[in-house]
Design a binder for these strands. Structure first.
Lengths: 242, 242
DNA sequence: CGCCTGGTTGAGAATCATCAACATCTGTGG
DNA sequence: CCACAGATGTTGATGATTCTCAACCAGGCG
């Protein structure tokens, strides 16, 4: 068996715990080595540091290794629309491909580490390794469907349903990483939550307080415990398995 | 010069007027021939006929040739969320890639013709023709950014702003096809518009009536004339060039 | 002709935004 | 280590936008 990472003995896609939910998902061992050769791992981002900004020349997509990143765009009148929160194992930056410049800004919500994947290298690799191409098509398609879920949420659901859905989504993404499904720290501010869900800070705060009083969750600042996951799912109006 | 389409003398990507805004955009002449070989053109869809349904096994993406298609998904409680309207030259079905089944249903709003592009053939072609791969990545990325624009619209904008934005978007897409920027027929119902923009039929109807009274547009059933495009853009809160 | 779908208009109700005051947390410097 | 300032979060009162319910109108098709 070959050395899993030829240029960095500490970290590699081959030994990354996130591999199962990140890029290498569908790859053969030697293809993972090829991926490893193009992935660049820089210094960590400090809280509030930008990974890239709206309008920057598009060069790379990024896999989040640790921490949390928010993607947002500014509206004409300077308001912030958060388009997504990205947790370890998730890929950010695919919106930049179409115009060769990023359509969103990406900012660290806490100290975070990312793996940079230069897109032209990824394109090359994709022509050589069909399963790589397939996997990347799937990742982009996944981004489309998750955006469409958010569209539905914004279009049809009440403030309570939106916030319950967000909590459930974070819980599910935690579970994928083998972390607690019921207890976690929200890396984003209430304002960010509002800007994501199309609500004001006040409404976010009120709904969270209400969930707390109702015994659905226990909140202390950013620490959240989901006390009644089934109850929350009922509030969110989602089928029990999602 | 080779025969542009080896298997269908009437229609081919090579002679299609929509080529400049559809798939072949960035292709060399002989690559267009390769694309032509995999594109399938079936009988037209009648109004209300489905191209595919949510949950169907994913096989192909489709380029709209004529008419108009709406994509929609059903919420848990049976409501309809329209995720997009697709006009000639636009590609539909990319949401199906991630799970190998369509995440939306697609239904003809009027008699429509589509070009079916079997995805596994497209994948093969993409490994052989890098510009094809690149172009398809760009199309998917475009879908992501347009979904994100819709997210912003739903999250931050009033009923008037949403409807003005939709009219402007249709106008701009008409212009791309060298059709009138100011006069067109809305292929979708008021209900569809509401389900797309997160509004009720009544609100849609009221806002359109108001625009009519204000002299911004002239409406007669589905026929719309944009009388004051600049005024509409002001209402929509968008920069004048979009 | 009458029915049914789709669209319009009106009145009242509900949700969420706005404005405002206050509380709490964070981190910085004395 | 404490004190303070600014940012962040909470709670309350009020109001606006949009939804809901309902009636009515117009057009298409059997």
């Amino acid at each position: 068996m070959p050395e899993t990472c030829p240029h960095n003995s500490a970290i590699s896609c081959g030994n990354c715990r996130l591999g199962s939910i990140c890029l290498p998902l569908a790859l053969e061992t030697d293809d993972v080595v090829k991926l490893d050769e193009i992935v660049q791992r820089g210094r960590p981002l400090q809280k509030n540091e930008h990974l890239y900004r709206e309008g920057d020349h598009f060069t790379s997509v990024y896999a989040v290794r640790s921490g949390a990143i928010k993607a947002y765009r500014l509206t004409g009148d300077g308001q912030e629309q958060v388009t997504g929160f990205y947790f370890p194992g998730e890929i950010i930056g695919m919106d930049g491909i179409s115009k060769d410049q990023y359509a969103c800004s990406a900012k660290a919500l806490e100290t975070s580490a990312v793996c940079e994947i230069p897109f032209n290298r990824l394109e090359e690799l994709s022509t050589q390794v069909p399963s790589m191409q397939r996997h990347f098509f799937q990742l982009m398609s996944q981004e489309i469907t998750s955006d469409q879920q958010l569209i539905t949420l914004l279009s049809k659901n009440s403030a309570e349903e939106r916030i319950a859905s967000l909590l459930i989504s974070i819980s599910a993404r935690n579970a994928r990483r083998k972390l607690s499904r019921t207890h976690f720290r929200l890396p984003m501010s209430r304002t960010d939550i509002g800007n994501f869900l199309g609500l004001t800070v006040e409404t976010v705060s009120r709904v969270i307080s209400r969930f707390n009083k109702q015994g659905l969750i226990a909140v202390e600042n950013k620490e959240v415990t989901l006390l009644d996951l089934e109850g929350l799912k009922a509030v969110a109006n989602v089928a029990s398995d999602s």
